[in-house]
Amino acid sequence: MKREKERGGTPVRGLLPLILLLGLWELTGDPASPYFPPPSTWVDGLRPLVDGDKLLPAIGQTALTFLLGLSIATVVGAVVGTLVGASRPIDRALSPSLEFLRALPAASLVPVAALVLGYTTQMKLVVVVLPATWPILLTCRTARRTLSPVLLDTPRTLGLSRWHRTTKILTPALTPAVLLGVRVAAPLALIITLLVEIVTRVDGLGAVLGAAQASFLSAQVYGLLTIAGVLGFLVNWVVTRAETAVSRRMRGTT
């Protein structure tokens, strides 16, 4: 019941204050303001980027890093999480090291990765993958740990091979957990992607945003911020939808 209500979402009426604020900003804002240029100037601010054919490639770079990083993180997180969750000794052996790695804030890794790996796309990927792996790893570990032994014993008594046990039992059983992890990891991965780009200025939307700020192109900064917001919204929307759809199906069949 409670879940259903939450799914119902927030009433659209709630957008009113934001719309009012933007409207007020538009009406009273000074188009020449170096701090708060009104929304209509944001589009003009973006025009040089569009004309110079820089905006779309930048969005593409960001999307690429984000998607690659999230995919790698999903595979690594799911595999390591499943292994760690399957065995108490492995869990105990690895958890202090994993906990310490987890405590390192992503932001502090950026300059280090840049120094060791250079200002490259690989460096961006490494920085994105590390923090995005944790949520997936943790949900998989918990899911594997709490998996009913009966579920694994039954196919064994039926004589299924190890490979079939993995593909037919373990993978579907853990898929909802992976997706739950991805739902948390995806917005994080997007944030880290932008973060690397802002700090190192290597390609992408974040780099453009950083450059705009450095040149005091405030209208362009707000325009790019809006684009980043749209990306964030899209990512959230897609992963929430995917997670809900799959977990509903899983619950329906079990």
Binding site: L209, G229, G232, F233
Partner: peptide, 19 residues
């Protein structure tokens, strides 16, 4: 009358606010 506005703002990746 405000939650949806807050959710819209929250979608903005926080790092993008640093600049």
């Amino acid at each position: 009358y405000s939650m949806a506005s807050l959710e819209a703002l929250r979608a903005l990746p926080i790092v993008a606010f640093v600049p």
